[in-house]
Design a protein around this nucleic acid. Structure first.
Length: 653
RNA sequence: GCGGGAGUAGCCCAACUGGCAAGAGGCGCCUGCCUCAGAAGCAGGUUGUUGUGAGUUCGAAUCUCACCUCCCGUACCA
């Protein structure tokens, strides 16, 4: 079947290199790097007799003198041609056996090497030695050239194979004296390697590549694990490829004026079972003409996968009603790249790599102005929960079938301890917490506030409802203070501005909460609101500006409660639409400042001085502290410094 | 195996670029107030070898190295 591929490999290098400038979690960048899988090395051609030749890819051209055999993937096209009659039966049996073996099987026993000798020999291009050619399933047809040169001295897999089939081993890198392993994959001077002898690995690689190129027997090459992207599907739903097949076999794109190609109305859009797209059966849609000359033509019937939409939807969000272009270039310049993209780690290598690729293609076409779509990316963590089973690998139990006795989960039915693992919530694991129950008991605001308060957004967290009480009390306290209850009147409000400590508390909270919001540190932002509320509790009357600022900042975390309180207080409009409070820098300062006095890194005293006291005065006062002077006498002062607003550093000998 | 992240109080977690006797907040626990009593509330109190060992530094939770444990990813990729 002919399929459409997108040539993402063409962008492999840029997709890799441009990761460096992105503000993404390291583990995610790493996953993309591994997915792209760049390897630097060389292609080396091995002649087989006078008529044949195959190419191997190696990352270690420096070890070519140690290549004592070659291995082809069982599916390699050359296998049939070079296998000797004596070996043919064995080779064919092995190929058949491999074909039957599932991926899973192949991976299960990585330790055991299997393979068969083809009876043929290849010429090692570096010294003309004849080396046997084997086939084995540890060589994958899908990677590199599907053929390797085996260097058992420097590669553990080759070592294992050589040992299993009694093939020769030559060391070409000198291991250190205390090396007691098998294959030596580390760095060291080349040995048994002719013109490379004595060179370190890096130097030897370069020298060998230069020699191969000069001799015309190979060349330096970079290989990627990333493969081209199969982009066609045989189903009804999906964007049709806008392509016409002319009778002479030419493929022509549908003219811009004819776009988009719309799907025909059909009775059945079920798969045909023939492998062909359901669209192929819609004759009056498929059969058309090429408008350029009226010649008969057939429409392409494959459709695109959902990626065709998800790869660039964010660009459409910028200008969703534009009928002329996917978005106005001015708007694109204004909004892109996306400032913060929040999503699950499951998108790490598919969606996030594909969208980057499309964006780069658009960038190269001059249709977008940045080479990368998502500048900052955050992966939210998952809430984890214990799951229970009677034992490992037995079916999962419902949480109700287990009870906790003295901290140990016990299976109710058997009275025996349960096998418990903390893992991602999942229906199949029966460890899902239903938020409805929490909402019933505490309300949606409490749940939301608590989830945010549990820890940093990017950390996985163990579900533990014991802390809910804390945020529930916090909301109740705010309500009591601002709206009052039957038993407890609301605090009296004043329009007078906050003064002194209250002012300091307010502005410290605004500054801190705002900064935490920017960095997505919601857990600490909430704790700062708790501090502010506690400070408000000591005030009678309570300055209205404090209540207002508090509610504005509470609104993102507990929207319902915040709006209700806002309304009770007679606030205009919505708390969530009111301007975010801003802090006054001068209110953050205090008249006096506390200093810790360190002698040789240990705090020996505390000091409170006027905020504008000069360094000299602070040092003098610090040295005069009894416990400090005690640690100074009899020693030579070698260093003294003041860290403004924090501490005095004294070092003695 | 390789790669990434984490390890701070009984528990969840803070600690800005190394700098306040290790602490913001919450849970739990204890005491007191309030109450007929409980719940709720209020006030106060409570605990440490910052995973282990070394190094750098006047000074390390923070930087470096080694090791341990857990989580995530990946795996015959030549």
């Amino acid at each position: 079947m002919r399929q459409w591929l997108l040539k993402i490999t063409e962008y492999a290098e840029r997709l890799l290199a441009d990761l460096e400038g992105l503000d993404w979690p390291e583990h995610l960048k790493q996953m993309q790097r591994e997915w792209i899988g760049r390897s630097e090395g060389a292609d080396v051609r091995f002649p087989v007799g006078d008529d044949h030749e195959f190419t191997v890819f190696t990352t270690r051209p420096d070890t070519l003198f140690g290549a004592t055999f070659c291995v082809l993937a069982p599916e390699h096209p050359l296998v049939a041609a070079i296998t000797t009659d004596a070996q043919r039966a064995d080779v064919e049996a092995y190929i058949e056996k491999t074909a039957r073996r599932s991926e899973r099987d192949r991976m299960a026993d990585i330790k055991t090497k299997s393979g068969v000798f083809t009876g043929a020999y290849a010429t090692n291009p570096v010294d003309g030695r004849q080396v046997p050619i084997w086939i084995a399933d540890y060589v994958l047809i899908t990677y590199g050239s599907g053929a390797i040169m085996a260097v058992p001295g420097q590669d553990q897999r080759d070592w294992d194979f050589a040992k299993a089939f009694d093939l020769p081993i030559i060391r070409t890198v000198q291991p250190p004296e205390d090396f007691d392993g098998e294959a030596f994959e580390g760095d060291g001077p080349a040995v048994n390697s002719g013109f490379l002898d004595g060179m370190e690995v890096t130097e030897a690689k370069a020298a060998m590549i230069a020699w191969l190129e000069e001799q015309g027997r190979g060349e330096g090459r970079v290989t990627y694990r990333l493969r081209d992207w199969l982009f066609s599907r045989q189903r009804y739903w999906g964007e049709p490829f806008p392509i016409l097949h002319r009778e002479n076999g030419d493929l022509v794109p549908v003219a811009d004026a004819e776009l988009p190609v719309r799907l025909p109305e059909v009775e059945s859009y079920k798969p045909t079972g023939t492998g062909e797209s359901p669209l192929a059966a819609v004759a009056d849609w498929v059969e058309t003409t090429d408008p350029s000359d009226g010649a008969r033509a057939l429409r392409e019937t494959n459709t695109m996968p959902q990626w065709a939409g998800s790869c660039w939807y964010y660009l459409r969000f910028v200008d969703p009603h534009n009928t002329q272009a996917f978005c106005d270039p001015e708007k694109e310049k204004q909004w892109l790249p996306v400032d913060v993209y929040v999503g699950g780690v499951e998108h790490a290598v598919l969606h996030l790599l594909y969208a980057r690729f499309w964006h780069k293609v658009l960038f190269d076409l001059g249709l977008v102005s940045t080479p990368e779509p998502f500048q900052r990316l955050v992966n939210q963590g998952m809430i984890l929960c214990p799951s229970y089973r009677e034992a490992e690998n037995t079916p999962y139990l419902r949480i109700d079938d287990v009870e906790i006795r003295d901290g140990t989960p016990i299976v109710k039915a058997t009275g025996k301890p349960a096998y418990s693992v903390v893992e991602k919530m999942s229906k199949s694991k029966k460890n899902v917490i239903n938020p409805d129950e929490i909402i019933q008991e505490y309300g949606a605001d409490t749940l939301r506030l608590y989830i945010l308060f549990m820890g940093p957004p990017d950390a996985d967290k163990l579900w533990d409802r014991s802390g809910i009480q804390g945020v529930y009390r916090f909301l109740n306290k705010a309500w009591r203070m601002l709206c009052g209850t039957d038993r407890h009147p609301a605090s009296e409000l004043t329009d007078a501005p906050a003064e002194g400590e209250a002012r300091h508390a307010l502005h410290t909270a605004i500054a801190g909460t705002t900064a935490d919001m920017e960095s997505l540190a919601y857990n600490t932002a909430i704790s700062k609101l708790m501090v502010l509320l506690n400070a408000m509790g000591d005030l009678d009357p309570l300055p209205r500006e404090m209540a207002t600022a508090f509610l504005s900042m509470l609104a993102p975390f507990a929207p319902h409660a915040a709006e209700a309180m806002w309304e009770t207080l007679g606030g205009e409009g919505f708390a969530s639409l009111a301007p975010w409070p801003t802090h006054d820098e001068s209110a953050l300062q205090t008249a006096t400042e506390d200093y810790a006095v360190q002698v040789n890194g240990k705090v020996r005293g505390k000091l409170t001085v006027a905020a504008d006291a000069p360094d000299e005065a602070i040092l003098t006062a610090a040295k005069a502290l009894p416990n400090v002077s005690e640690h100074l006498t009899g020693h030579t002062l070698v260093k003294e410094m003041v860290v403004r607003g924090r501490l005095v550093v004294l070092a003695v000998k």
